[in-house]
Design a protein around this nucleic acid. Structure first.
Lengths: 346, 346
DNA sequence: GATTAGCACTCGGTAGAATTGAGTGCCAAT
DNA sequence: ATTGGCACTCAATTCTACCGAGTGCTAATC
């Protein structure tokens, strides 16, 4: 609740900070502009409203607050929120939520994808915001198995299993009819060829021109084609209906939803925030104008310093930062335990 | 545009039908209650407003129309819409859309899942409604390959390839440490055991108690566990942001979105409509109250009488039925060609 | 010099009254 | 059976008044 003054270029004196904090908290709570008197109710500075007003004028001049119109209270700007979150003491998740999370991870079963999908729903329920869970690229995962299965004479399926448990399939179309035997042989060679390699490593493909070699070559090239776009991340979005609660303008809702539909965009948004070393991006801080009334919280999911994914939350700029941050972190933490524990220990 | 009178228990005389049709069309267009005069503008019966009013009173008594309040025009009831769609001549998709669809299917590449995902987006763009594409259960698909890959000593991955190109993975956890050789042997046995069977057929599992047999048994049982819930359908939802355009109440939007989040529910909704032999379900016709202001259009995707999926559209009850129906059917048709052609011919 | 009490002022929001007008229902005439 | 005519209804719109939360300013105070 109190804020620590770490030395930075622009730092507010204690009273201004308290006032700003009060305005932010109050506005998050009520969605209404906050006046000098309500500030005094929540934060007991031994001061008169007039003084608070003077301070608020200053805060407005410095860009932390705005007035929707003359004779209204103040509303935080993005900068105001930013100051607020930067000076936030680490929040904690309530005991009930704590319990819910534990319970969830105790009960949850099934494949990674299912777990993440459900995790996303959990996070959304915990916070009542829309949640995003990204399963990061497995670029460094090694190939445990590569198998070519033929569907019919010319259509085959390359099924690749990675060390992180991912399974990927690729259609391989041949320009000739291959016999079962040829496909089986190609499958065997592929497996030998790719075993232990990653998508990044170079492999020596046979240059012969027989059917088997052709199949092998075609398969490898299809597999390689994976790389370019950030296509290999999986995204799970939970509670998109929360968008309708978080924003009032129908048009805003539409825009936000429409962005959530583009998974690639969501991934890059979230990873961009992480890359910039942030845990929250407020309003215009992420580059997407349609999201200018949104805040995005991210928490990396990393095992041994290796990022395996991201969990995120998307809400209005006036979202409940302490709780949401805490929830995201807690869930991220449990994910690490869940998967870290599963792969190494147990 | 004109409606055919097929003999049914309740059938309207020509004039009532024309009036009803005019009201529906007009209201779909304007979202406003329709009065007697606007009816006369769009449908030129050689009659005075008073007569139309009298007819509308009758239509209201029979449950096809309602007045939002005295002294307002009429709005169609679900029954009104129902009559409208039942007497609809098959619509056609515009040439531009026709082109767009053709173009799409010419360009589209990649795995079934990707194609369906994109198809869903296409359909949504074509109609400006939210679209649903369901990839039906592959219960009868035979197993082409089953392979056990070990991740570590106790964790294995059962990768099953079906004749329809589906690949499914299952985690198999053992209570003992298995050697690579044992896993490889189990994999070989599994493949032999399951090859050519379906998820429904019974197989003879070994009753021995050695590691290999245990692995095989465990794997088979994990695979069998698939069956119960309708879990094995895949759902692709496109243009969920359209929901925000289609309904005005924020609460309605939230409810609809919240239903779309539950994929299982969407599947059963859509399949239920199909099972009842309908192509449109209006308002209360499908059992879900939260969707009472929605209409759902469905079109089966079937190859040789065998259903391989469903495409659907979800919009407000006052949706553009002719266009939407036509679009859904056209897309379904192209899907059949696309996959039918790919698997059998070519 | 900072603080504050006091006060005039602004302006969104609400409430009520008046008005409008689209659309009805009914009835007597055709 | 149809229709012109007419009185009536009621949501929506506009206008007015006004309230009150909240401000900014200034002159007095600590």
């Amino acid at each position: 609740m109190a804020k620590r003054a770490n030395v930075a270029d622009d730092e507010l004196d204690a009273r201004k900070a308290t006032i700003l904090e009060a305005v932010v908290t109050e506005h998050i709570d009520t969605a209404q502009p906050v006046g000098s008197s309500s500030v005094l109710q929540s934060a007991d500075l031994g001061v008169s409203p007039a003084t608070v007003r003077a301070e608020m004028v200053a805060l407005e001049r410095e860009g932390y607050l705005v007035q929707p119109h003359t004779s209204a209270g103040r509303v935080p700007t993005d900068k105001g929120y930013r100051y607020f979150v930067d000076h936030l003491e680490a929040g904690v998740v309530g005991p009930a939520e704590q319990e819910q999370i534990k319970d969830f991870f105790k009960r949850v079963r099934g494949e990674v994808e299912d777990v993440l999908e459900q995790t996303s729903t959990l996070l959304s329920q915990l916070t009542s915001y829309t949640s995003v869970v990204v399963n990061s690229a497995h670029a460094h995962a090694t190939i445990l198995s590569a198998q070519l299965v033929n569907l019919d004479a010319r259509h085959h399926l390359l099924v690749t299993v990675f060390s992180d448990g991912t399974v990927i399939k690729h259609s391989v179309k041949a320009s000739f009819d291959a016999s079962h035997l040829e496909v089986a042989e190609a499958s065997k060679q592929l497996n030998a060829l790719l075993l232990g390699t990653t998508l990044e490593s170079r492999v020596q493909v046979p240059s012969r021109t027989d059917h088997v070699a052709k199949l092998v070559r075609e398969s490898v090239s299809v597999l390689r084609a994976e790389q370019p776009a950030g296509e290999d991340e999986q995204v799970f979005i939970g509670g998109s209906s929360r968008v309708a609660e978080s924003f009032d303008g129908v048009e805003t809702v539409r825009q936000v939803l429409s962005i959530l539909e583009q998974e690639l965009l969501v991934v890059s948004l979230v990873e961009d925030i992480l890359d910039r070393g942030l845990s929250v991006a407020i309003g215009s801080e992420h580059g997407y104008e349609p999201l200018s009334s949104c805040a995005v919280i991210v928490a990396p999911v990393a095992i041994d310093g290796e990022s395996i994914g991201v969990v995120g939350l998307l809400g209005p700029t006036r979202m409940k930062y302490p709780e949401a941050l805490a929830a995201a972190r807690a869930v991220s933490h449990h994910l690490v335990r869940h998967f870290g524990g599963e792969v190494e220990g147990e």
